[in-house]
């Protein structure tokens, strides 16, 4: 009895201490974002601000490009997701529910593409985009991510579990194959689509590598790229607004995660397959 109490106490202590370390940068970021300027530059340890200072947020939202970064992030992430689904879903349906020449070959390509991390393709895509002259555009930020082997793989797994009778019934009812994809298959695949959307949105909202390469125009900066522009410009005196900006940029995904924890955990864990 006492032994189990002690072991519980120890493990709780360990877990809470670990959680405190995990939370440390979040708390420090929030604390600095709400601290008045003089408290930021004080040498005493002071986790909580003496009073809540909203002006940092006001500065970040009105005097900097943070709202623009958010908008760019939204456009890029939504554009990527929409195109990924538009291309991946019909292909997955054909791979799962139709018999055609070259089906095994196409699926083999999907599996092979799963092995290729994005970083590997960056140089040729950059060279190609430079040649065509579409660097520094939303297109440059969206296009390279349209092919999603992971998405095709995920949707194919889902579609091949659906009974083929369902699709035959739709054919009897007069739906074209395209109509079957969007009116029957896709609505049924909502659980898979949610997991995929969470994975895709998180990955591309947070991505720095490609935006750093494909754009040099600050007006096209996605949130991570933008926060770096912000940091490099302020050079040390505007820590408050910088932290407020970091909070604002991190907030959408963190809030979404807090509201839909189970779905998020599943979606991101499924991404482990792709790595």
């Amino acid at each position: 009895m006492i032994r189990s109490f002690i072991s519980r106490a120890w493990s709780t202590l360990f877990l809470v201490a670990g959680a405190a370390v995990i939370l440390l940068p979040f708390l420090w970021m929030l604390s600095l974002a709400f601290k008045p300027r003089d408290e930021i530059f004080s040498a005493d340890i002071q986790l909580l601000p003496s009073r809540i200072e909203w002006s940092n947020f006001v500065v970040a939202l009105t005097e900097t490009d943070v709202p623009l970064f958010l908008w760019n992030g939204f456009v890029v992430v939504a554009g990527i997701l929409a195109f990924q689904i538009l291309f991946a879903v019909p292909c997955s349906y054909a791979l799962a529910q139709r018999r055609f020449k070259g089906r095994t070959f196409v699926f083999g390509m999907v599996l092979a593409a799963l092995l290729v991390p994005f970083h590997v393709t960056a140089i040729p895509i950059f060279l190609g985009f430079a040649k065509v002259g579409i660097l520094n555009s939303y297109g440059a930020l969206i296009l390279p991510f349209v092919p999603t082997a992971f998405g095709i793989f995920l949707f194919r797994q889902f579609f091949s579990q659906l009974p083929s009778d369902l699709f035959d019934a739709a054919r009897v009812d007069g739906l074209s194959e395209t109509a079957i994809v969007w009116r029957i298959a896709f609505p049924l695949a909502m659980p898979a689509a949610t997991a995929f959307a969470i994975f895709s949105v998180t990955a591309h909202w947070n991505d720095l590598f490609w935006p750093l390469i494909a754009t040099t125009d600050p007006h096209l900066a996605t949130p991570p790229r933008g926060i770096l522009y912000f940091r490099d410009e302020e050079s040390g005196d505007d820590v408050g607004p910088l932290m407020a900006g970091a909070v604002i940029i991190t907030a959408p995904l963190v809030l979404a995660f807090l509201l839909a924890q189970r779905k998020f955990t599943q979606g991101l864990a499924a991404g482990g397959l792709k790595g």
Partner: peptide
């Protein structure tokens, strides 16, 4: 514990 996975790594 899961928070850092969802949070934007650059901002963090």
């Amino acid at each position: 514990y899961f928070l850092p996975v969802a949070a934007t790594l650059v901002a963090m």
